[in-house]
Design a protein around this nucleic acid. Structure first.
Lengths: 201, 201
DNA sequence: GTTCCAAGTGGTACTTAGTACCGTAACATG
DNA sequence: CATGTTACGGTACTAAGTACCACTTGGAAC
């Protein structure tokens, strides 16, 4: 179950990884070229030199290809949560400070691959159905943040709100949105400052 | 184009409204009975005694039936925006107060039909693809709020954030979520109080 | 290396959502 | 009542996603 990173990647694993990457590259290229909706799975499969069936073995549906980096973000987030200090978090301000730091971990991970992020950003912004899915992802982050806060002693109502406010800052940044990951990160921080600045005064 | 409410509803209009309502009722009944994903459009059409083609004439896709009350909410929101005082809105606190009032208008409209809201709530919570669409609706509200604020002099960055924070409060209420519209309304207000309470201190 | 098992692959066939088109029926208007 | 417009339902099509099956390939044991 766990990815024991060093039992040497077998030939099978390498091939699997390669075809996965080939699918992703092919799909993104086609999507950017002609738009997500008009590109068929058949087409992606052909260009990636695999069968249609195989495509759906790697990705549950056409949209999932677009969100293929999701796992990396989740890993970054859970790692950050694991490393977070275990002080009890009582009020909204404390909760926000924590979830802000956790969100930052995700953005930082995204910034590790600026090119990919830029393409992702454009694609999602241009296709409502992809943005729907993107917000599902965001909802999931909110759930994880919320759980983390509750586990650290934040009252449920406060935790839920803090999580939602945090993703709201992220959404604001996304919306103001340059296609640049680090810019989004900066804007998210600005949003937090604005929010907490109001709090401090 | 505009619904001139009094040229007396023609026979055609009445029929149209009736079939529309019949489709909605039939669909909701089936969805609640067996789940959104397993009910086919064919089935809805048969039970509603219309052709499959007609279904898609009334609703762009299967999901749209679930969100058939959307128009009412939008009407309520735009009406509230029209009636809103035209003082200039500068800082985040002012912007939040305004968008809070506007959001309230939507919730109030929802509370006018508690039974329908309860069913809607259950359905959406049980089906991720519907929740995706639900958040698209919420995004749209955010866009409208944002525009309203900007039109009333709020600086763009502040407006975007205020709009996102507002829907965050709504989302928190939704998530804490009883199936009851008035309860959601109350919880949303609590969320605002919590948020602004931090602001005031 | 040969054998054997597990895993990955691609093809066929099926269901369903959604679109385009067309002839027909029902309403509206003079 | 005649005529134009709007709504309707059927047929046929494309594409996503699923189920199933026969085939191939990598891994491991002997």
């Amino acid at each position: 179950m766990s990815a024991n990173k060093f039992p040497v990647e077998s030939l099978r694993d390498r091939k699997r990884r390669q075809t996965r990457e080939r699918i992703i590259e092919t799909a993104f290229a086609l999507f950017m070229e002609r738009g997500f909706d008009v590109v068929t799975v058949d087409e992606i499969a052909q260009r990636a030199e695999i069968g249609r069936t195989t495509f759906f073995r790697y990705f549950g549906d056409k949209q999932e290809v677009v969100f293929s980096t999701e796992d990396d973000f989740l890993r970054a987030l859970t790692a950050a949560m694991r490393d977070a200090p275990t002080e009890p978090l009582q009020d909204l301000a404390q909760a926000l400070a924590t979830s802000r730091r956790l969100l930052l971990a995700i953005c930082t991970e995204a910034a590790r691959n600026p090119g990919h992020y830029a393409v992702y950003h454009r694609l999602v912004k241009q296709h409502p159905e992809l943005e729907d899915r993107h917000t599902r992802k965001t909802r999931h982050y909110a759930d994880l943040l919320e759980k983390h806060l509750i586990d650290h002693g934040t009252p449920p109502a406060t935790a839920v709100l803090a999580a939602q406010l945090t993703v709201a800052c992220y959404q604001a940044a996304w919306r103001l949105g340059s296609h640049d990951a680090t810019a989004v990160l900066r804007e998210a921080n600005d949003a937090f400052d604005l929010l907490l600045g109001a709090t401090a005064t």
